[in-house]
Design a protein around this nucleic acid. Structure first.
Lengths: 202, 202
DNA sequence: AAAATCATAGAACATATGTTTGCAATATTT
DNA sequence: AAATATTGCAAACATATGTTCTATGATTTT
């Protein structure tokens, strides 16, 4: 009796295997770990899961199953905000992070390490890693990563975005700091919207 | 002339391949995509990268290279802090999250959704998911998840841990709230130490 | 310039792993 | 109860893919 429960167990095993090992299991891995006696059985399970849409799998290829709607996305850490212009160059990729896709949807995400205290009253602390969705526009009140070029100030910053009297205002969430209204408004480029953050204490 | 630059290109290709496909490339994939003429050459590159510590790879296994510093841990979301006693029962598992292992090391981790504003001045907001390492003791000043039973107050809370005059003090990081010094000190159980958090805006 | 080392290639080899086949046991339908 | 379909197994098979071998030209060293 091929209960759906059993199939879900198998699917869960495959997920866990990939998470722990970095690559998918073989049918023989499945046999060993799930107490299946024949590779044909494991093979069959995989095909059922594929038929039900839970797995993707190329025929013949070894170790090439992929869990659909995988619970995680790999997101590159691109650099530090406030430290020049490291964001655009892919060369500055400092590694990948795996985030739960359910929480952080979107095509084009990246991480930035936050430097400074300018958003501390929005709960964004020095050293936090913010999760940014790349986009070039923003709504009033959203927290964005933006670049502008103003002689005095330069580089990328995290700020809350406002449009006031036709001008873009970059508002730090820190009562000791003043709003930034870049003189050269045309130089302002929004790099993305902050959709989350990760912090590591200890 | 095997420049280090070339090797880094290869490493980056492997990263990207895994990112896009969900499983690692074969030496023949590498040949095709990197304009390498012989599988032996690709094989050689992989071994160099392994020798330099950039890759992990089990011998003989197919598609089993892993880029170092990319691995992740699956961490269960066990419930909400401040809402009764949901933490101890594994039945309350609400799903798994995949976190970067590099950041959040440790054997026994779990997530809790934070309810309330009691740690807001430590940058922990209502709705945040805190990452907790299970342990039964704590050092002065650490943020912990603790349970105690005091008639009035009950259940699990996140607080900063202090020991003052032999008594355990649970200090909320919120200037509108008072320290908690449970009368029944013996009932205090530390469930774990907060080692990080995740927040999802938007 | 000769010798030695190194990087790459082509081809053959070895095997881990996907796939197929046929059979026995169990469940489901007639 | 017989017939039919379903499930799981063992074993064989096919091949995608890791690995080794030898050769050749390019660099570096002597």
């Amino acid at each position: 009796m091929i209960s759906q429960d059993r199939l879900m167990e198998v699917l869960d095993y495959i997920r866990r295997f990939i998470d722990e090992n970095g690559f998918p299991p073989t049918v023989r891995d499945m046999c060993r770990d799930l107490n299946i006696k024949s590779t044909a059985t494991a093979y069959d399970y995989v095909n059922r899961l594929k038929a039900q849409g839970y797995l993707e799998k190329a025929e013949k290829k070894k170790r090439a199953v992929v869990v659909r709607g995988t619970s995680s996305v790999r997101v590159p850490l691109l650099g530090v905000v406030n430290a020049g212009q490291p964001i655009l160059a892919i060369e500055h990729n400092e590694g990948y992070y795996t985030l739960p896709e359910a929480e952080f949807k979107g095509d084009d995400l990246f991480l930035l390490r936050v430097h400074g205290e300018s958003m501390i009253e929005a709960g964004i602390y020095d050293g936090d890693k913010i999760i940014v969705r790349r986009q070039e526009t923003a709504e009033n009140g959203e927290i964005v990563v933006a670049m502008f070029n103003d002689g005095t100030e330069d580089g990328a910053t995290v700020k809350r975005f406002y449009k006031r009297d036709g001008s873009i205002v970059l508002h730090p969430e820190n009562s000791t700091m003043d709003d930034i209204v870049p003189e050269n408004q045309d130089s302002i480029r929004i790099l993305g919207k902050v959709i989350g953050l990760m912090r590591s204490l200890s």
